[in-house]
Design a protein around this nucleic acid. Structure first.
Length: 178
DNA sequence: GTCTAGATCGCCT
DNA sequence: GGCGATCTAGACG
């Protein structure tokens, strides 16, 4: 069962395929899931990517095989979750920026400490699902965090990415059309 | 609704 | 020592 075969492609091609996918977490023994509606692609030769300057202790997971979860600390406070794409040895991935809660909303409210804006940002999404550094490297096909690609394609919009200072014009942010 | 500052960790120069 | 793939609270209107 190589269900995540589609992740082997180039990040900007794979990213839109993740829109509509269902991300499920069983962290803490509690089931929470969201439908992915916003992502960004980060290529290995992309100055905005953590992998651009080669492997480090932090980004090692990005250089591993595709289909794993890459988690990093953002601004010293938040956790952000990515799906590793491409082939092993080449650091590339897709940042999960936003979702729509499907299951476990009550738990998300508890984890987030508020009842709205649960998963509409990378840090918030990770917090709502309970994802931290401990889950870096998790296999998304059979781990505590799993990804189930959408059956069909979803209409989406393309824009430049958010919150970066390099390669700001690359149109590699993908948002599902509602 | 808008704008601004502050929190705080790992990596890089 | 500086800065970032962020979010929040508080100020203002």
């Amino acid at each position: 069962m190589k269900g995540l075969r589609l992740l082997e492609g180039d990040a900007p091609e794979v990213a839109p395929l993740l829109l509509g996918a269902v991300l499920t977490s069983q962290i803490g023994g509690i089931l929470t899931s969201v439908r992915i509606v916003e992502v960004e692609a980060y290529r290995h030769d992309d100055p905005a990517s953590h992998s651009f300057s080669g492997p480090t202790a932090r980004n090692a997971t990005m250089f591993g095989p595709p289909g794993r979860l890459y988690v990093y600390r953002s601004y010293g406070i938040h956790w952000c979750a990515n799906v590793v794409t491409g082939v092993a040895g080449v650091g590339a991935g897709v940042l999960l920026r936003g979702g729509i809660p499907i299951e476990g909303m009550d738990v998300m409210v508890q984890r987030r400490g508020r009842a709205s804006q649960l998963t509409n940002g990378p840090g918030k999404l990770a917090q709502a699902l309970g994802i931290t550094r401990e889950h870096d490297g998790t296999d998304l096909s059979n781990g505590l965090v799993r990804l189930e690609p959408a059956g069909g394609s979803v209409p989406f919009r393309v824009t430049p990415r958010i919150g970066i200072t390099k390669a700001v014009d690359a149109p590699w942010r993908f948002v599902a059309d509602l």
